[in-house]
Design a protein around this nucleic acid. Structure first.
Lengths: 143, 143
DNA sequence: TTCTTGACTTGGACTCTGTCCATCGTAGGA
DNA sequence: TCCTACGATGGACAGAGTCCAAGTCAAGAA
């Protein structure tokens, strides 16, 4: 994700201050922000940026393959700027925190042909669910 | 999922006509319905059933472990009555159809301890994405 | 069988996430 | 510098889901 701005310019992206700010927000910490969180952080630098623009820009970054969408629960989608390094996700069922993980093995190979029902399978998404250390502690206290 | 009603009664569920109808809808075809689809089918038998009741009942079935929630895209959650047989999902990126699949291998074992960040990992969800035969055909025609 | 009561249902208001659109502004080439 | 098409704006709208006060009824008690 580094030098994202350069790559975007190279692809003929018209560079506006709004797009720059959104890209910079994503280029910062490798956390998994919701669209609203991206908007909030972008607005700290560019107060008048609109939600619609953030949604548009995120959508474009996704279709350019610079960012991937993650929808772990049924709530807001999260945006993962780590699109150039294949990885999976580990999600805390308590607080929703997401961490990137790199399991061994190849789950695509684990799906036998007779279980594919004629589908052209192109991608596998593996999501590990559990409790992060701090949520595990509070769950223990509750019991 | 068969004899769901019996199991629920055994657990002290107060049996109302609304809950019975919702359970019967799920007990039918093993498709993956959205809450609204469940509501529509339930309303065919019990026209005055409300959306809130359908949501409540689905939520209870989920916490009882009789039904699992699947949120593949960012759209509506789907409800999978096949909770007693472990399986994964194969989703068509075109039309959203979901099929149950049974991959070999154990993805939980594929996550090394140093990639767990102290989490208590309890569950893995594997989602295969691709195009179903009919969507693959129309994609081909478009090209 | 009837009574009683607390669990369940209802429907409408509300929230949250996301999309759409008409209008305005501006990046970047001529 | 000027033009213009592409991008931004914000407000209306839509879909999914939650909440709540008031009414209803399943099932145990008498």
């Amino acid at each position: 994700m580094s030098d994202l701005l350069g790559r975007l310019r190279g692809r003929g992206w018209r560079m506006t201050s709004q797009r720059r700010v959104v890209a910079e927000v994503l280029d910062g910490d490798h956390v998994h922000l919701t669209a609203d969180e991206v908007h909030a952080r972008a607005a700290r630098r560019l107060p008048e940026i609109s939600r619609a623009t953030v949604y548009n820009t995120l959508g474009e970054l996704v279709s350019l393959g610079e960012v991937t969408e993650v929808s772990t629960d049924g709530r807001a989608k999260r945006y993962d700027p780590n699109a150039h390094h294949p990885h999976q996700h580990l999600v805390c069922s308590g607080c929703g925190t997401i961490r990137d993980v790199h399991p061994t093995g190849n789950p695509l190979a684990d799906l036998p042909a007779e279980e594919r029902f004629g589908f052209t399978v192109s991608e596998v998404e593996v999501t590990y669910h559990g409790l992060c250390p701090s949520c595990a502690r509070s769950a223990h206290l509750d019991a």
